[in-house]
């Protein structure tokens, strides 16, 4: 599939299906990428974007895990949190942007908060769901073995909810990465999203395409890494069990 797309791109550029201003030739994109790598700009912008995502995602996922777990484990907590959580999660994070800008300005905080927010929602949802759905029989096993609450959580509930939690984390990470680009398009002076808007405003679509490829590749790499971590955890879980 990727090969097919690449072929289509090359042919389309050759045949002039789309003007070069709209879809630049792969060769031009490659040349631009070389220049940007050589000058260190691409690396610097990528590093900034990655830092924003890791900060935002770490905060959002941590809060999401806590809130999700609270909802999943305690009826009382769910009753308190459910409604506001539902309302918040119904509005896409970029919808909150105007309000957030008034509250925290347009600086780094804004980016981190928006990214954290976009990670938080799926993580919390899936964690709560996963913990609530732990089969009764498994819980009963714990009760029979007279597990204390901590053992119950670490030996039974978390392992059983793990696939669901990881689904949430993966979704959260994907959201973080997408949101990053959106938030960097607006009011920034560095990062991959900024590189895209800069390329667009200076009408150098090769820069835009280059940034797109980098964004896609990193997204893929992040997702793959998280998949590996999940598999490792599950194997370890099976072994200890």
């Amino acid at each position: 599939m990727p090969v097919l797309l690449l072929v289509l791109w090359v042919v389309s550029a050759r045949e002039g299906w789309l003007t070069e201003q709209i879809l630049p030739e792969p060769r031009d994109v490659l040349q631009t990428a070389r220049d940007y790598v050589a000058s260190g700009e691409l690396l610097a912008d990528t590093a900034i974007s990655l830092r924003r995502v890791s900060e935002g995602f770490a905060i959002g996922a941590a809060i999401g895990l806590v809130i999700g777990a609270a909802q999943g484990l305690s009826q009382g907590a769910r009753a308190i949190v459910e409604l506001p959580f539902f309302v918040i999660s119904q509005v896409p994070v970029l919808g909150w942007l105007p309000l957030l800008i008034l509250l925290v300005g347009i600086d780094e905080e804004l980016k981190v908060i928006v990214i954290a927010w976009s990670a938080f929602v799926p993580v919390a949802l899936n964690t709560a769901q996963g913990m609530r759905d732990v089969p009764r029989t498994l819980r009963e096993v714990g009760q029979v073995l007279t597990f204390d609450p901590w053992s119950m959580l670490s030996r039974i509930i978390v392992p059983a909810a793990l696939p669901s939690i990881f689904t949430g984390l993966r979704e959260g990470l994907a959201h973080s990465w997408q949101t990053l680009v959106a938030v960097e398009l607006f009011a920034s002076s560095e990062g991959l999203g900024y590189l895209m808007s800069w390329g667009r405003q200076l009408f150098q679509l090769d820069i835009v395409v280059m940034a797109l490829v980098v964004v896609g590749a990193i997204g893929l790499a992040l997702n793959w890494t998280l998949g590996r971590v999940e598999r490792r955890l599950r194997r370890w879980q099976v072994q200890t069990a």
Partner: peptide, 20 residues
């Protein structure tokens, strides 16, 4: 200086808000 990329309308909003 630190130049932030904003369109004209957003620049006014940012000035008013004291962001720039």
């Amino acid at each position: 200086a630190r130049f932030i990329n904003l369109d004209f309308a957003n620049a006014v909003a940012a000035l008013v808000a004291g962001d720039i």
